[in-house]
Every structure is written in structure tokens, then in C-alpha cells.
Amino acid sequence: MMTSKQIKEVSLKHFAKDGYEGASLAHIAEDVGIKKQSIYTHFKGKDELFLQLCSDASEDEIRFVVNFIETNKTRPIKEFLYDFLMQSLDRYEKNDSNKFWIRTAFFPPSHLNEMVMKVVNEYLDKLEELLLPIIEMAMGEGEINSIIGGRQATAAFLGIYDGIVVEMLYGGPERLKKRLDASWDVYWRGLSK
């Protein structure tokens, strides 16, 4: 039986690979094994399908962050933060939802820009809200320098995260490693006591 879940799974791969403009409902329907008009039984159209995937991907990313924090919060902050970056890179390589999410955040369809950026900015605010207590706790325990302040340290960390995401999209492995190594080194020296 045909379900909206199957349509979303196949659509995610198409949108992640080809973007909004390159993804075709006809190709999606073909890969699901249905006629194109059957998609409209579940979704009003391409926009509604895309926005649902965007919302789902945001929720997936928040679940990843919450799970990462739960399973790693007792580790030293240096390992915690660096491993968060490493797992983010790994997710981009192996996870269609993450690939779709990052592509969508950087290249939203122009006519959906406002709606997509609302979801992206809510995600970024939530990410900061989730990481801030971890960084503040490390400051309180004397693991890292508290002169900078938790909000500033968290925002700077997210700047590194943004930088590696840009290199994942545009730069390739060597540029990514160079950017990550340099950014991480300067960031960590700034936080170290």
C-alpha cells in the first residue's frame, strides 16, 4: 500500500540530490511506483511536500543534537565539542535527511525562502539553546576560560560549525580539513585556561 511516508522517503533523496528545482514529482512517483497524480492524495503539491520534508529534517537534526548531548555530556568539553563537529561531518556524508537539510538551509527555493528560513532560524536558535548549558557547565567547572562568556563561546562554536558546513558544500575534503583544523585550534586556544 502506498503511503505518504514512502513518498517522503523517495522525495528526500531526490531533493537532497537535485534540490527543489531539479526534483521532479514525475520521477518521484516513478521511483515510488505510482502515478504522479497519486502524490496529490497525500500532498497538495511540490511546495507542501518540500516544506514537510524541511520540517521533518529540522526535527531529525534536533533529535540528533539532543541524543548527542545525552550520550556525551559527561565527556571533557574539548572532546564533546570536537566530536560534535566530527559527527556532523559524518552525518552529512551518510544521511539523506541531513544532506537535504543543509542544502535547503543554504539554497532554499526563492518562492519558499521566508518559510524555509523561519524553520532554519528556529533550528539554529534551538541548537544554541541546547549547547549553551553544556559550555556554561564546563566554564563553571573550570574546564575552560569563563572570561569570554557562555553565549559568546557558543556563538563562536556555531561559527566554526557554519564554516565547516560551507566547506562540505563547496570546498572538498582538503579545504574542509584545513578550515576545521585552523578554526578549531584558534577557538580552543581562546577557551583554554
Rank of each mutant, 00 (worst) to 15 (best):
I102G: 00
I102V: 07
R103L: 00
F106E: 02
F107K: 00
P108G: 07
P108R: 02
P108T: 00
P109Y: 04
P109T: 04
P109C: 03
P109H: 05
S110C: 00
S110L: 07
H111I: 03
H111Y: 05
L112H: 09
L112V: 04
E114Y: 10
M115L: 10
M115G: 00
M115E: 13
V116Q: 05
V116S: 03
M117D: 06
M117N: 11
K118P: 03
V119T: 12
V120Y: 11
N121L: 07
L124Y: 12
L124T: 01
L127K: 14
L127P: 04
L130W: 00
L131C: 10
L132Y: 15
L132D: 00
L132V: 06
L132G: 03
P133F: 14
I135E: 12
I135H: 06
E136Q: 15
E136R: 12
E136N: 15
M137F: 11
M137G: 15
M137I: 12
A138F: 06
A138D: 12
G140S: 13
G142K: 14
G142M: 14
E143K: 14
I144D: 14
N145H: 07
S146C: 01
I148E: 10
G149D: 02
G149K: 03
G149I: 02
G150D: 06
Q152Y: 11
T154V: 11
A155T: 13
A156V: 08
A156P: 03
A156G: 10
A156Q: 12
F157K: 10
G159T: 09
I160E: 04
I160A: 01
Y161P: 04
Y161C: 01
Y161S: 05
Y161V: 06
Y161Q: 01
D162S: 13
G163N: 09
G163C: 04
G163Y: 04
I164W: 01
V166L: 05
E167V: 04
E167P: 02
M168V: 00
Y170W: 07
Y170F: 12
Y170H: 08
G171V: 01
